[in-house]
Design a binder for these strands. Structure first.
Length: 461
DNA sequence: CTAGCCTTGATC
DNA sequence: GATCAAGGCTAG
């Protein structure tokens, strides 16, 4: 029609209109065209980010990874541009793997909240008499507002390593859209009460009741190992927990926003971690330790326990050439290797090698439990107070393991020694896992408020 | 490859 | 039915 005023012109000729909702693109400073992949950006950065993620681009910078980003120079270095995109908080998850058009995703509410917050800001700038209704909305929004993880990434130059799982989406069966909308996936986990509590000092304290005298366990009994094994948690229980947690998560998302494999694995790891902490806290041997020692031990070995747990699951359940992932069914190793980046590929193949070795050794449940205890009771952990006690327990389990392997495999050359020789590799893998997870965490890929993140943080702080 | 404009479609 | 963030298309 005759109007034909470009929006830009319209704004310039209307200085006293609304207090300028026009922002500049946080990536390059160009004019924003709307919310794209998590925040307000310009049209070109939207397109650039989409192409980069869709085609799994890996750029390199020929300069110092700090190239200027403005509308004129943004084309020069896609590496720095993409880094900037991630740093300001553009979300890979918002790029659809199935390329489905139209519709909305889980960021809809986020966008609305962001808008409201901006409105509030403007409102407070322009008036000094806040009205009640507005205050109420602000309060309601306050707690969830600044939770974005990417704020913490700042301008770190995390190398854009593997970006494996974003393309391969898995749809666990039975994931309907249940009612109960969750506030926002990146906010507080209100259901923490149902799952084992977090590792913070407060939560560990009440459960630990240092047994005064020598318990039945501590005096050497012939069933020592059996008792340890009995305390193990059931695999099907874990599976149910993971599924429940995944269903909660999926329920809070839209159809377009299916959890990808990486998110699913994070959830699994998180639930497993809860289970492991619970396992330790319920263990009679562990309860005898001071709470502070319990803390530092768990903080030191959680990833090893996680790896060990994974290994045992693979030895027991996985098919040849596949990784058994509890809820997603089997995933072929070759598939992962073809999609994963360097770090993850190496992790997967190292782990698979270990699985092969442990399978050849015919690792059984009793031995696995022993290994877990050996890892947990690590007297070499710095700042352990009752070092002697930890040492003695470790030695005790060690002896039990030795006796058992000699009993059950009298003909086996040295199963005991062979098992112990695997532990350094477990440790090494676990460290690599931590590194990998921390990198993904910095990229904003890890769900916030997970025990996993908490553990990562205590180590890196 | 870039970026402006176009088409889609779940949600409001 | 309007909205508006997804993906698609295509000159440059």
């Amino acid at each position: 029609s005759a109007g034909d005023l470009s929006p830009g012109l319209e704004l310039k000729t209307e200085p006293e209109g609304r207090p300028e909702p026009e922002e500049s693109c946080p990536v390059c400073g160009d004019r924003v065209s709307g919310y794209h992949y998590g925040l307000l950006t310009c049209e070109s950065c939207k397109g650039f980010f989409k192409r980069s993620v869709q085609n799994n681009k890996h750029y390199t910078c020929v300069e110092m990874q700090s190239c200027p980003m403005n509308p004129l120079q943004r084309k020069r270095c896609p590496y720095c541009r993409f880094q900037k995109c991630l740093a300001v908080g553009m979300k890979r998850e918002a790029v659809r793997a199935d390329r489905m058009r139209g519709g909305r995703n889980k960021f809809g509410p986020l966008y609305r909240r962001d808008r409201q917050m901006k409105e509030q800001k403007v409102y407070h700038q322009t008036t000094t008499t806040p009205c009640r209704i507005k205050m109420e909305t602000t309060q309601a929004l306050q707690p969830t507002a600044p939770s974005d993880l990417h704020l913490m990434t700042g301008h770190t130059n995390v190398p854009l390593s593997s970006d494996p799982f974003h393309q391969c989406q898995v749809y666990p069966s039975g994931m309907g859209q249940l009612g109960a909308p969750m506030p926002l996936d990146c906010t507080m986990n209100t259901d923490r009460g149902l799952t084992p509590p977090s590792l913070s000092t407060t939560s560990l304290t009440p459960a630990s009741t240092p047994t005064p005298g020598p318990s039945a366990l501590v005096t050497s009994t012939p069933n020592f190992l059996d008792q340890l094994v009995e305390a193990e948690q059931d695999e099907s229980q874990l599976c149910a927990k993971v599924l429940a947690s995944l269903q909660r998560e999926q329920a809070s998302r839209g159809k377009h926003d299916r959890l990808n494999t990486f998110s699913i694995m994070c959830k699994m790891a998180d639930q497993t971690l809860f289970g492991l902490v619970e396992w330790a806290r319920n263990s009679a041997l562990f309860k005898e330790l001071k709470v502070e020692d319990q803390m530092v031990l768990l903080q030191s070995c959680w990833s090893e326990l996680l790896v060990l747990d994974h290994l045992c699951r693979q030895v027991s359940y996985s098919k040849e050439g596949c990784i058994y992932l509890t809820v997603t069914g089997d995933i072929e190793v070759s598939t992962i290797l073809s999609q994963a980046g360097v770090t993850l590929s190496s992790l997967v193949s190292r782990t698979q090698d270990l699985v092969t070795k442990l399978r050849a050794l015919q690792l059984d449940r009793h031995e696995f439990v022993c290994l877990k205890y050996l890892v947990l009771f690590n007297p070499d952990v710095k700042s352990v107070q009752s070092r002697r006690q930890v040492e003695q327990t470790q030695e005790r389990v060690n002896r039990a393991l030795m006796e058992r392997t000699q009993q059950t495999h009298p003909g086996h050359s040295d199963k005991f020694g062979q098992l112990l020789l695997r532990l350094p590799e477990v440790r090494s893998i676990s460290l690599q896992v931590e590194d990998y997870l921390y990198q993904r965490h910095l990229l904003g890929d890890l769900p916030c408020n997970s025990l996993l993140t908490e553990m990562l943080h205590t180590k890196h702080s």
